[in-house]
Design a protein around this nucleic acid. Structure first.
Lengths: 241, 241
DNA sequence: CGTGAATGGTCCGGTTCTGGACCAAAGGTT
DNA sequence: AACCTTTGGTCCAGAACCGGACCATTCACG
């Protein structure tokens, strides 16, 4: 801390604290999965014992988290054989601006981050040899995104498409990065004005991105994703000043 | 989980567990900061009460973590006014291949991730209006990297340079991403053969990167960093087969 | 030389998390 | 109908973590 020239800058930025106890982390994780459309209405969660192990948390803690989601109306639970916890979540009407404006710096950070990791994921995905399953998954996600008419459903489908791209990139660290970027922006994306022009533009870009990935044009995929990020970024920056 | 086409892929990848209790996380964080050269030999840690708050952890837990580092010989502690905990860490001789070969998939993942986030950080840094302090910090880090003759010291200086670039990008999320990439590769970078040719090549690339950042040439900075990552990536891939 | 400030060392009560055992409900199987 | 399997519901003892108070040591300053 004393000697070297730049040492005063680094540690304070690197040695940050990972906020959140297991309970809060678990709630956040499940809620994020639902809000991002990873788990959609009607999906069933794995059995508690199994999910607890998967999340690396005690079943008690997981149960508390599920109880919180239940109180929030995101899931319902039935017991007995064939029972379990099911997602019951009607996509919210956008523009409702739920939790209010968050700290601007955090959002600008997330926009910068997204502008790096999403194009990177698209680039990497395009360099992979994709399986038939993966190719059709991308195609399906693209189709579902453009088919969605309801704004809320559209947002979920959009998230799912972006996460699908990250997933086929095959890098777990990148997947997690994209997830975090989406989660950080999540609420804000609800606030994007749903003009036909915006949707159309967004869909054109999605098509370009997926097309480039499927044809293995890595640079094109990255460029297209960069333009896509810049477009939504411009819209969002306008909303927060 | 049941209905949609691709839903079987996503949840298992997204709903991962964040490993590590507070104690282990804290040890890991401090040890990483030391191994990456964020804290170098002779640096003093902040007072325990302060550092504990900064890390979001109880002082007891932090003390346990410091005790672990002390047992590992990374730091020494004196008490009383003017006392404190000081880093005592001689950079290890490379090629010693300390912990053995890790799982290949993890390393390939880290290489892919790094190839995305480091160029992204360089690009973003180049788009910023850098302060005089930041500009001279980059210059100093670059100079120290090229000046280092001892291989171990060189590796630390190299890490510091990369982290400095990430830091001046101004995005905390990106900084953390670069830190994780470096940490994941950390041990392996020790295994790079220290040939004069490699060092020289690496230094030329560093100069190109910093030069591009300082002159605001974002695309050049990214391209240069990409080449740099590809070069070390090729070396490392050769080592693990 | 004494006194105060800074810093690590120790301890304790309360809360959360864990890991496991056991209970209760619901649906399938014989 | 009787029984078994799957799944959520409940409880408990031990460990980890928190946060706060207090002790011990060292150095600077008057």
């Amino acid at each position: 801390m004393t000697h070297p020239a730049g040492a005063t800058h680094l540690p304070s930025v690197i040695l940050r604290h990972t906020p959140g106890n297991p309970f809060e982390t678990t709630v956040e994780q499940l809620a994020t999965a639902i809000r991002l459309g990873v788990l959609v209405d009607g999906d069933q969660l794995p059995p508690e014992r199994e999910l607890a192990e998967q999340l690396g948390v005690a079943r008690n803690t997981l149960r508390d988290a599920i109880a919180a989601l239940r109180d929030a109306g995101l899931v319902t639970t039935r017991r007995g054989r064939g029972g379990g916890t099911v997602v019951t979540y009607a996509a919210p009407a956008p523009g409702s601006a739920g939790t209010g404006v968050r700290r601007g710096a955090t959002l600008l950070d997330a926009l910068d981050f997204r502008r790096v990791v999403e194009p990177g994921a698209a680039w990497l995905a395009a360099t992979r040899e994709l399986s038939g399953d993966q190719r059709s998954w991308l195609a399906t996600s693209l189709r579902e995104t453009s088919a969605a008419t309801d704004p809320g459903v559209h947002r979920l489908a959009d998230s799912r498409l972006h996460l699908a791209i990250a997933t086929v990139s095959g890098s777990p660290m990148l997947i997690e990065a994209v997830t975090r970027a989406q989660a950080a922006l999540g609420e804000l994306l609800d606030a994007i004005p749903v003009l036909r022009k915006n949707i159309q533009h967004s869909h054109d870009q999605h098509e370009a991105i997926v097309g480039a990935i499927l044809s293995g044009a890595a640079e094109d995929a990255r460029t297209a994703m960069e333009e896509h990020c810049d477009a939504t970024s411009a819209l969002l920056r306008g909303l927060i000043g």
